[in-house]
């Protein structure tokens, strides 16, 4: 099980180099990070996975972007939009993570989308930056949405990932802080552990429940 921060933004988007983010992640207790638009590698004992973020595009463009990045080993994430878009994206083979649920509309992720995510092993990302940096209504709304996601997760057991969306080393938090922040949305320690290992679980192919041996 690899403890992974599912999204960080190195230089030039952020103000820290990918090596520095990896060093910081190691100090904070992470085994790997997903760095957006950065080649993969290993720095300071921390595995850096390359991430692709697809946002604000129609489904047609998502399909072509996923096709282009197929077999590249990148972690492909799509920003959530309305319900139809989310269902279409979750159904696509090659999409790993659905992000930005807290910014999408209230009905964007319902029980049908949750069931599809569980069947297709598409993770839903819990972005901790609105809880860390947000104040007042923005934070309240994010906590409410995440609590709603957790209710669906308990029922359908789709994968969850946790990310700080750090653009700087100052935005990163250690694993204990993340567990504390996740307790605000009703996640207990086993839930947090499972969520921190979420990236690894969506990238490894599922083991079939029935195996033909003869």
């Amino acid at each position: 099980m690899k403890i992974t921060d599912a999204a960080v933004y190195p230089y030039p988007i952020g103000d820290a180099s990918v090596r520095r983010l990896a060093l910081e992640a190691a100090a904070l207790g992470f085994d790997s990070i997903v760095a957006v638009d950065t080649p993969s590698g290993t720095y300071g004992g921390v595995e850096v996975r390359s991430g692709l973020m697809i946002r604000d595009v129609p489904v047609k463009d998502v399909i072509s972007a996923v096709k282009r990045s197929k077999d590249s080993g990148r972690v492909i994430s799509v920003n959530a939009a309305n319900n139809n878009f989310n269902r279409a994206v979750i159904g696509l083979k090659g999409v790993h993570i659905l992000r930005g649920i807290q910014s999408a509309d209230k009905l964007a992720f319902d029980h049908v989308a949750a069931k599809m995510a569980a069947d297709n092993r598409v993770a839903v990302d819990i972005d901790l930056s609105p809880i860390i940096m947000g104040r007042s209504v923005a934070r309240q709304r994010a906590i409410h949405r995440y609590m709603d996601i957790m209710v669906l997760e308990q029922r359908f057991e789709f994968p969850i990932t946790l990310s700080t969306h750090a653009r700087s080393v100052l935005d990163m938090r250690n694993v204990r802080d993340i567990a504390g922040l996740c307790s605000l949305i009703g996640m207990d320690v086993p839930d947090v552990e499972r969520a921190l290992a979420g990236v690894g679980s969506v990238l490894t192919p599922p083991v079939p429940s029935v195996r033909v041996i003869a």
């Binding site: 860390i132 940096m133 100052l170 935005d171 250690n174 204990r176 802080d177 504390g180 922040l181």
Partner: peptide, 20 residues
């Protein structure tokens, strides 16, 4: 308190982070 401290991001317009 530890959870609250992890949400401190700035001190008088200076970006900081407190690592417990």
């Amino acid at each position: 308190l530890a959870i609250a401290v992890s949400t401190v991001t700035a001190c008088r317009d200076v970006r900081i982070s407190l690592r417990i």
